[in-house]
Design a protein around this nucleic acid. Structure first.
Ligand SMILES: [Mn+2]
Ligand SMILES: [Mn+2]
Ligand SMILES: [Mn+2]
Ligand SMILES: [Mn+2]
Lengths: 220, 220
DNA sequence: AGATTTATTTTGACTACTCAAAATAGGCCG
DNA sequence: CGGCCTATTTTGAGTAGTCAAAATAAATCT
């Protein structure tokens, strides 16, 4: 049985290798796990011994097939737990990430399957993050962000990347939850500002940095 | 934050001090936690340093007020989680103990309160074990067992002590779940046998040892 | 190319928890 | 009381995970 520590390392390697060339730097990994770089190095060597990652010294880490399978399992637990906490227990969507961080290591596969059924086999969690399938398929569709999308076309929010409670609170307050329809009214690169229009709501201004954390797709 | 290990030690001291003079022997504690006695001694000394137990060397351990408060919190989580798993996720009541053993350490107080509300503030878990209140009140009512109760009076099962999957499976199969009405038809001390009658069901024989794990009260 | 900056790895040390096996203290029995 | 049996404690050692700080390699900049 993999320890919580091992599960967290693998999950973060998976998350960090999403963009980029698939090789995760030690610095990034250590940062994500809130440990000093030396600790990450030591741990990664142990994981490599266990056949869960491939370590290219001085360059980075990458998951092996076994490591990826495990990481996807943890991610599935994390996101299904978040969905349960929001949909069934009605928790604040900004609080569930911290909860799921613990619960993802304590839930059995049996309980997971039952939660999945109870929730109606959701495809995404409350933040729009895709939930890996039972077989380990992860939707990797690339979306535009409010910082990069076309202007003046009607779009809908599909996902909010940035797990921080403050940002999620802000998104909730201003009503930019996944599913919301909107369009980019204007974008000022120099000022780093994006202005949004939503039907029946007042215009909203957003920094480019913030806008980059909100993924959108053409309104269906 | 108390580690899972600490929480398990405290919970088992609480459980083991239920009967007896309140002083739990190292042997009993070590056995319950599946560690060697020396490990329990070491750990208990650490807990005593932390003010969670009182250690009378060579005699036993007892919870302090702080330790008891913590232990009751863990027990509450354990039993509410079991209730959730059975009532909401429809899991087999023989399987939930092992699940709850992990989840009791991963659930926050906020999630716990919401589960409690979702379940309608139950007083007992699926096995009839009393759930400590939010304020730390634990019902300590003493019940008769099928091995000790009066014969030929109608009773109802209130609780099944013995967490083992095999025994719980047996109880489930033979329909002796908490709530069931029955009476002791005969009891043969020499043979160590108890015979039960239930309305509309065939008589059932049980060893005295097994009967001792089924608690009953007068039918209301 | 040589020097400097920066990321990574190594080393030594620490905490929490555990076991095996030897030492010891209590309780009990004659 | 004195000896024996048994539970408990002590001692020495090991695993998993972590940090601080020194050593090293890679990348970048004259
Ligand atoms: Mn986690
Ligand atoms: Mn999420
Ligand atoms: Mn436990
Ligand atoms: Mn129970």
């Amino acid at each position: 049985m993999a320890s919580s520590t091992v599960e967290n390392y693998l999950k973060h390697v998976l998350l960090l290798s999403a963009g980029g060339d698939g090789l995760v730097s030690m610095g990034a990994l250590a940062g994500a796990l809130a440990v000093v770089p030396g600790t990450a190095t030591t741990m990664v060597k142990a994981l490599a011994d266990g056949g869960l990652v491939e370590h290219r010294p001085r360059h980075g880490v990458r998951l092996t097939a076994a490591g990826r399978r495990l990481a996807l399992g943890v991610l599935r637990k994390h996101r299904l737990v978040e969905t349960f906490l929001v949909n069934v227990l009605k928790m604040d969507w900004a609080a569930v990430h911290a909860e799921a961080e613990q619960l993802e290591h304590a839930i059995s596969d049996d309980v997971l399957d039952r939660l999945d059924a109870l929730l109606g086999h959701p495809a995404t969690d409350p933040h729009g993050d895709p939930i890996p399938s039972r077989q380990g398929q992860l939707d990797s569709q690339v979306y535009a962000t409010l910082a990069t999308c076309v202007a003046d076309k009607t779009l809908r929010v599909v996902r909010v990347t940035d797990q921080s409670a403050e940002f999620l609170q802000f998104v909730d307050q201003t009503g930019l939850l996944p599913g919301t329809a909107l369009r980019v009214a204007s974008r000022n690169l120099a000022a780093g500002l994006v202005t949004l229009k939503r039907p029946g709501a007042r215009p909203l201004a957003l920094s480019l940095a913030a806008a980059g954390n909100i993924l959108v797709a053409p309104a269906r």
